[in-house]
Every structure is written in structure tokens, then in C-alpha cells.
Computed example of a mutant assay.
Amino acid sequence: MSASLTLFFSPTSPYVRKVMVLLHETGQLGMVNLHGVTLTPVNPNADVNEHNPAGKIPALQLADSSVLHDSRVILDYFDHQHGGEPLIPRDGPERWRRLTLASLADAVTDAAILVRYETFLRPEDKRWDDWVLGQCSKIDRALAAFEDAAGELDERFDVAAISAACALGYLDFRMPDLNWRRDCPKLAAWYSTVSQRPSLVATAPVH
């Protein structure tokens, strides 16, 4: 049976990667047709804009042609489609803690992408060093919090761990000189182990 869902996709997007990891972990990859796109804020994609007015990926077109967008929404959708243990706790304090950790990981990714845009896409004479430093400070604060929470990430591979692993993978991919492992040894040890999971190996971005 052919896939009935279409995921607007780029293999280097850390937000798309979160969705792909969950699909691998829950055995749902075969349900999805991958529609590859390349886009930046100054190079939008018409197909994406048609389905997601924000012009961002991932976007997921369902069988009825309706579209979900934002990785957190799509993760929640797919987490309700499998019969295994939920990767997003359904209720209680654990739900809010794991979603908060996932949100912090997304903040790392957001800041890293803004640094990437400022230092790679923006013309050199228009770059704002203080802006980059501000984003790097966000990353540093978030990583310090994850260093304290490394034991929590190790409890289970769920939305928090997926989001943190994808954020750290993006730092290694786009900010290889950051050397975050020096100041976060517990987080580095966790990531060294978790990054060997088949779902993360299969979705690792390549230059």
C-alpha cells in the first residue's frame, strides 16, 4: 500500500529530523512520502508556502489533504498513531517536564539557526556581532541546564531526548567550533551513547 501522508522534508533540517527520528522509533516511516524541498528565509519554496503559510518545514499533508505544521504538532500527531509506549507523556507532571525539556532543546536549535543565518546568509558588511553573541549566550545557558538534566534525558528516549539529541546534532553540524562538550561532560557522555541509536544514525545530516 502506498504512503498516504506527505512530509515536506529537508535532510539537514533539525526540526524535520525530530519527526524522522520518531517515525523510525515507532515504525511509521512507511506511512510517509517524503517531499524534498530546499528553502531559506530569502529563498522560499512555493510548494511549502501553499501548504504552510509560514513557509517552514516540516509540514505534513494528511490523507484528507489537510496540513499540519510545526514539528511539535507533527510529533504529537504521529505519537498518537502507534500502539507502543507514548513518546510524549499523555498527562501529569511528567508530561509538562518532558515537554519543557523539549522546548528548551528547540530554543537551542532556534538560536543556532539564527546564528547560521546571520553568519552565512547575511552579507558580511551587514552582520551584527552582538546579535550572534546574544544567540550564543542562549545556547550556553540552555546547555548548562541540560548538563544538570543529563540524568533525566537518560531515563527514556522520548520527546525530550529526541529534541535534545537533534539540537546537539545540529550544533555539531553547523557550529563545529563551539566545543560544547568541554563544559558539559555529562551531557556529552549521554549524547555519545544516544547518538548511536539506529534512528539517529539514519537521520544524521551530511554536508
Rank of each mutant, 00 (worst) to 15 (best):
D129F: 04
E118R: 12
C184M: 13
V206Y: 05
Y117Q: 05
I113E: 12
R17I: 08
R72C: 03
S66P: 00
A204L: 13
F8K: 00
A167K: 06
A167M: 04
L5Y: 13
Y77V: 00
V19D: 09
T109K: 01
P185N: 15
I74H: 03
G169Q: 02
Q135P: 01
L99E: 10
A164H: 05
Q135T: 03
Y191D: 12
A160F: 06
K186V: 04
D129R: 12
D76Y: 01
W96C: 03
H82Q: 09
L62G: 02
L7Q: 11
A107Y: 06
A105E: 11
V19N: 06
P11T: 04
A145F: 11
M1S: 07
E94V: 14
E155L: 14
C166I: 01
A204V: 10
M20G: 11
L39V: 07
D70I: 05
F146Q: 11
E50K: 02
D47I: 00
L23E: 06
T6K: 08
S10K: 03
A102G: 13
I113Y: 14
C136P: 00
I57S: 13
P89D: 11
P53M: 08
A142L: 03
Q135G: 04
S65W: 00
I57Q: 12
A202S: 15
L60F: 08
D140R: 13
L87W: 08
H51T: 02
